[in-house]
């Protein structure tokens, strides 16, 4: 991979972020009512004072100036103050973000660990019994909405079997191994819900990609080398089949983040997803804007990672 490609790809982040920020701000600006409409409606506040406040905060400036000011503030991390949590929004998010990232990361890992072998096996034995079962299960997997899977798991593992806690607790009063064990135990279900959902789609991506690659000429070349089927599959099929899968996974990230919000809400995981929902129920606009913005940044970041990975996997890219 050439450095040039990397720089070019990094520069592409700027228009993407600008586009998203314009979109977000448009939604905000189009929304009826502004922070001072209540003030204006309040008979106790004289209209001159309200007007002075409006002018002071620049609410009557042209829209692009207001956008610019908003953008600069966002970039500086001045995301406002959360009335609900009584703290700065950036601090609040920084507090909650790691939990979300850990849950999503663990779920991705689980998804890959399950989907890669299953997808490769199904793709190399198309239309076998194994393939048909895997394919059907994959369909079931991504047709099950995350909120329903979550409830099903709670029903089975918390209520029927009583193995796992169904509410995530941040304040576990235990130390040492027990502390970690409790943490793992309460993370199992949220990670399973997200991971299996993501894994189900991944199985189908991997399978269809493997199916495409298996019948290419260079795989026949590899077989003719007499290197054995296992090496043919791992070196010449899987490696090449992963290239399009990377892009598909990146395209799925927005859906994964959506799933994370639902999962966090069900299991009350203290991440930014549940923060978003509680902020909405409490009309905490600065938090809502900030979380949406953070999710957008994460998606752009994932796309960036995927593109870099793609170029690393496929030497043809760097020379384009």
């Amino acid at each position: 991979m050439s450095r040039q490609y990397l720089i070019r790809r990094l520069l592409l982040v700027i228009p993407a972020m600008l586009g998203i920020s314009v979109l977000l701000y448009t939604v905000l600006a189009l929304a009826p009512g502004d922070p001072f409409s209540e003030l204006a409606a309040n008979p106790a506040v004289p209209p001159e004072v309200a007007q002075a406040l409006r002018t002071k905060f620049g609410l009557d400036d042209p829209v692009w100036i207001r956008y610019w000011r908003w953008l600069i503030a966002m970039l500086h991390g001045e995301w406002g103050f959360s009335f609900q949590s009584r703290m700065d929004v950036d601090r609040l998010i920084m507090q909650r973000l790691p939990t979300t990232l850990i849950v999503i990361g663990a779920a991705q890992l689980l998804a890959i660990l399950v989907a890669l072998p299953v997808g490769v096996l199904a793709g190399t034995r198309p239309y076998s019994i194994f393939d048909q079962i895997a394919n059907t299960l994959a369909f079931v997997g991504f047709s099950l909405p995350t909120f329903f899977t979550g409830l099903l798991l709670i029903l089975v593992f918390s209520i029927q079997l009583d193995w796992l806690p169904f509410v995530y607790r941040a304040d576990i009063d235990a130390t040492g191994w027990r502390f970690y064990w409790e943490h793992i135990k309460q993370s199992i279900m949220p990670v399973m819900v997200l991971g299996l959902f993501q894994g189900a789609s991944l199985v189908r991506y991997v399978r269809s990609s493997v199916l495409d690659v298996v019948r290419l000429d260079y795989v026949t070349t590899a077989r003719a080398k007499g290197i054995g089927e296992r090496k043919v599959i791992s070196r010449h099929v899987v490696r090449n089949a992963l290239i399009p899968v990377v892009t598909l996974v990146a395209l799925q990230m927005p859906i994964v983040f959506g799933g994370a919000i639902v999962t966090e809400q069900i299991f009350r995981v203290p991440g930014i997803g549940s923060l978003l929902i509680s902020a909405m129920l409490a009309n905490d606009t600065p938090v809502i804007m900030a979380v949406t913005f953070v999710f957008s940044c994460l998606v752009v970041l994932c796309n960036l990672i995927a593109d870099v990975l793609y170029a690393w996997l496929d030497p043809r890219i760097a020379f384009r």
Binding site: Y218, T221, R223, G226, G228, N240
Partner: peptide, 27 residues
């Protein structure tokens, strides 16, 4: 069997295909 066949491939009988553009692994 497979593993015996693999000792014949390339070592005793080798093959060149029609399409040089697609017969090599691009990665």
């Amino acid at each position: 069997p497979q593993d015996e066949m693999n000792k014949v491939r390339a070592r005793e009988i080798a093959i060149v295909f029609q399409e040089p553009m697609t017969s090599l692994n691009p990665v």
